[in-house]
Design a protein around this nucleic acid. Structure first.
Lengths: 362, 362
DNA sequence: GGCAGTTTAGCAACGCTGTTGCGTAATAGA
DNA sequence: TCTATTACGCAACAGCGTTGCTAAACTGCC
């Protein structure tokens, strides 16, 4: 629950504790209210252990008792709930010409949102200035998440070479922002941040999903097996540059017949139906490859014709009795990416840890 | 390390122990020899804790002392190694006309391999008979893994409707085999089992990879983020049925221009170069989507012209300074799938658990 | 050959985790 | 008012990794 920090050892038992606390917080996020017995059954812990965990979480201000009573006979049970306002995170969406900043609480609710313009072809220094002046006067800030176009390296926190931005080659943005803002910083691809927003808000039922983003280009954020999936080089989800027409027109990426080139051409010509059909074919390809059961449609271009795209996608997906796929629209609108970046910070601090205290490791 | 089984509680602390034991076994698998200090550094445990873990593992017969290392001054350190013969697993590959059975040890080495023919259009009962008589007279058997064509449901252990087999609709094969063989059984898609074999043998460096299988059809087994990835309905990796030519010829799956139809047509016509180029285009699509950095080529058809396919794949993958992809051939030959099925059993018993003692959970 | 320094191994006590046992509080129904 | 039932918590406990200390085995030096 807290940063590993200095001491190299004494970690393993603490991680067991943190793991169980995260488990309870994760459960609290999905339920408006909960009691001790319910947590005990869901986590497999004994009721006493849950009492201890809830005691610690109450002390940290993360949960609180909000009432009593429920069933018939016997002493009434205490009802707990998450305290959404106990922690906050900042999410940032760095686009080509604008900087969007969002403040969210622990439940993932967007409390404030603002946009400022960025200088044309801005430099790292200019971005850091804009970041500094956009920060909300927050207390209890867990950290800052930055969502940005790739390619970039999530693990190292380095922007490899943002598309159509000249001054962004191998820039260690995470370190720079961390120093400028004096807060923990996460750096990730915009689409991955976006899908994190959807996953965080929907809870554990959203195990395998993809966020399809159509906004000056076509990309996908992947959430596989209950976690953001980024691939070996933080480059997963570049599905706009998958070929769907081997002898198709040349794409900026060097190949021919990419989904993006076909879609954007049709879209620019006003043939939105055709564009949607091409995208839908690509989405089915994605389903064949990744077998996600949640498709979330997003992006400014797409959301101008939401029902066209949703209908085309639904129509293209084959039906079967054992394979269901939900197709929905992103419900955070233009804030998805910034909000998702914020929720990545929350996820790192209050999500269920995937590996326990083990570093890079062999 | 042992099955959760009966007792519902008292689990959490034991799981911490099992987790660390699994960690050490996983490390032991990647190194021929190791000592206490090395394990301590890799796992973050203290040397004393490693002593306790190694003591328990020695008692279980999984590791043994194999000598001492004298490096300069000081008392020489004990050198340990995994005892490959201490545990065995059986892997089975159910193909349309044959049943391949493989016996492997804890290190993943194939000790024995045999093939028996299956009756044409065989029934579940006939398969179970063949399974029973194919079982090696083993002791120390951890379990049996079955790799089979989909669609099937890995979690439930049910074959949904094996391709081109009439009697295989919603057959609970895992339960049936478990009863027939009196051993734990795992059921998985053939390609997923195959990629498990590669991942198990290569160790943790193989975090994100895909096994491309070309053998009467085109499929892919995915290994993402250090674990087999199956998707929401155990249907991931059906990348033979991704469309690469929107206006292409009709495919058996109902869509048009699937990778498989284009590839198989060219292959059947003897245009192997063309077939390899089509497959390579599909592989690059897969890379754009999943960003794996290991591509393993396999399958009887493909391995008749291994260098043609490897060269075509290498040529198609774009090069960049921060993005490297290795392209190799499956080194287990025809045994890959059966061996991988066996290693899934080993993985379940001696791999690093992903979630600790938490069941299905909310 | 004897002594100091270094590295490894292991026993014993400890802290912290979740677990178990049992006593207490609060409610419904008789 | 009494009893059964349910919820909660203190106290003792078992098991995990950690810390402190001692013994063992080796090298290098005197």
């Amino acid at each position: 629950m807290d940063t590993p920090g200095a001491t190299p050892n004494r970690v393993h038992l603490e991680h067991l504790r943190d793991y169980n606390e995260s488990l309870v917080v994760a459960l609290a996020r999905t339920r408006a209210e909960f009691d001790r017995a319910g947590v005990a059954e869901a986590t497999g812990l004994t009721p006493q252990a849950v009492s201890k965990v809830l005691g610690r979480l109450t002390e940290q201000g993360l949960v609180e008792v909000c009432g009593v009573r429920r069933q018939g006979v016997g002493k009434p049970a205490s009802i707990y709930r998450l305290v959404p306002g106990s922690r906050h995170a900042v999410g940032v969406h760095v686009a080509r010409t604008t900087l969007r900043t969002v403040l969210t609480d622990l439940a993932g609710t967007v409390l404030a949102s603002r946009v400022v313009p960025l200088p044309p072809d801005f430099t790292p220094g200019q971005l850091l200035d804009a970041l500094r002046s956009s920060m909300p006067p927050g207390q209890d800030l867990v950290g800052v998440g930055i969502g940005m176009v790739g390619p970039l390296d999530h693990a190292a926190g380095i922007v490899r070479g943002a598309h159509r931005l000249r001054h962004w080659h191998d820039v260690p943005l995470r370190r720079l922002a961390q120093e400028a803002l004096a807060l923990p910083v996460h750096l990730d691809k915009d689409v991955t941040a976006g899908v994190t927003a959807e996953a965080w808000r929907r809870g554990p039922a959203f195990r395998d999903g993809a966020l399809i983003m159509v906004e000056s280009g076509v990309g996908a954020g992947l959430w596989l097996g209950g976690a953001a999936y980024r691939g070996a080089h933080t480059n997963a989800g570049e599905f706009g540059h998958t070929v769907v027409q081997l002898d198709g027109p040349r794409c900026v990426c060097g190949r021919s017949g990419c989904l993006e080139v076909l879609h954007d051409t049709a879209f620019a010509d006003g043939r939105v139906d055709d564009a949607a059909r091409v995208l839908a074919a690509g989405i089915v390809n994605l389903l064949q490859t990744t077998d996600v059961d949640h498709i979330v449609l997003a992006g400014a271009d797409l959301l101008r014709f939401p029902e066209v795209y949703r209908a085309a996608t639904r129509a293209a997906i084959p039906v079967s009795h054992w394979m269901d796929v939900s197709v929905t629209l992103a419900d955070l609108g233009a804030d998805v990416i910034a909000a998702g970046a914020a929720m990545q910070v929350l996820d790192a601090a209050y999500g269920i840890p995937s590996k326990m205290g083990v570093r890079s490791l062999f």
